[in-house]
């Protein structure tokens, strides 16, 4: 019962966030001409014309690139984080990862465009390379924060290293894995759009680029709203999942 209540609370807060965004947008639209910042009302009025088969097709492409790129980087980033901790090379390796983090996405996009040409690979690799450092750094930092004294508890009750992994490290990692999901996903969403903007002829990023060329702000704002709705939907899903299965791993000291 509490889970359902929390689920609806999460929906409520996410809708409130969306409402807040739309409110700011609406206020700004009052001060600017429609060709610069169109009113949200205008966008919603023309919703039917925006949601057509081309849009659906491109949304599907963006979404598959996002899922593929993000989850590849999520899995590998987590593995890299664990390995960095295990090999005790956190300081050296994290510095390298931070260096990767500061590379502007546009530069990386141009390099991948030259390497792979226009197509699926540019957005995929951009998502992969730009979200991986964040996930790896968060994972290794979280492992370093694990309470080592608890390892003694497991050993003192005749546990072995597999038990230490099961009862200490994996549960300790869960909050970080969840926060990596939300943080990484929002970053990946931005990056995949940028990747499609730079090096693709399909996807929402590509549609945004076309709209930019034709200075079609109505469409730009529509795509922006769609991105925000995708992000909020993902956030609601994660909150529900967290509440349903993993609540006990999120506690205040």
């Amino acid at each position: 019962m509490k889970i359902i209540k929390n689920f609806f609370t999460s929906i409520k807060y996410n809708i409130l966030a969306l409402f807040f965004f739309i409110l700011i947008w609406f206020i700004l639209s009052l001060f600017f001409e429609d060709y610069l910042i169109p009113s949200p009302l205008l966008i919603f009025k023309n919703l039917k014309s925006h949601i057509n088969s081309t849009f659906i097709q491109n949304l599907r492409i963006t979404f598959s690139r996002l899922i593929l790129g993000f989850f590849s980087s999520y899995l590998l980033g987590t593995a890299v984080g664990i390995l960095t901790y295990k090999l005790k090379i956190k300081t050296t390796f994290n510095t390298f990862l931070i260096l990767l983090e500061v590379i502007p996405g546009v530069i990386l996009g141009v390099i991948f465009l030259l390497l792979f040409g226009i197509g699926n690979l540019v957005p995929f690799f951009m998502v992969f390379f730009l979200t991986l450092p964040l996930i790896a750094i968060n994972t290794s930092n979280s492992l370093y924060k694990t309470n080592k004294l608890m390892e003694e508890v497991v050993v003192s009750f005749n546990g072995n290293s597999v038990d230490i992994l099961n009862y200490i490290y994996l549960p300790g990692l869960i909050p970080t894995l969840i926060s990596n999901l939300t943080l990484g996903f929002s970053l990946a969403l931005k990056v995949v759009i940028l990747g499609e903007f730079i090096g693709s002829q399909e996807g929402i990023g590509y549609l945004l680029n076309v709209s930019r060329i034709y200075f079609n702000m109505n469409e730009i704002f529509f795509y922006l709203t769609i991105m925000i709705i995708i992000m909020l939907g993902f956030q609601i899903l994660i909150d529900f999942f967290k509440d349903l299965l993993l609540k006990k791993f999120f506690y205040k000291e």
């Binding site: 608890m150 508890v153 003192s156 506690y251």
Partner: peptide, 13 residues
């Protein structure tokens, strides 16, 4: 064997 430590050392989850 079992050990009771100075601190409770309970699993928070």
């Amino acid at each position: 064997t079992s050990t009771i430590f100075q601190e409770p050392r309970l699993f928070n989850y």
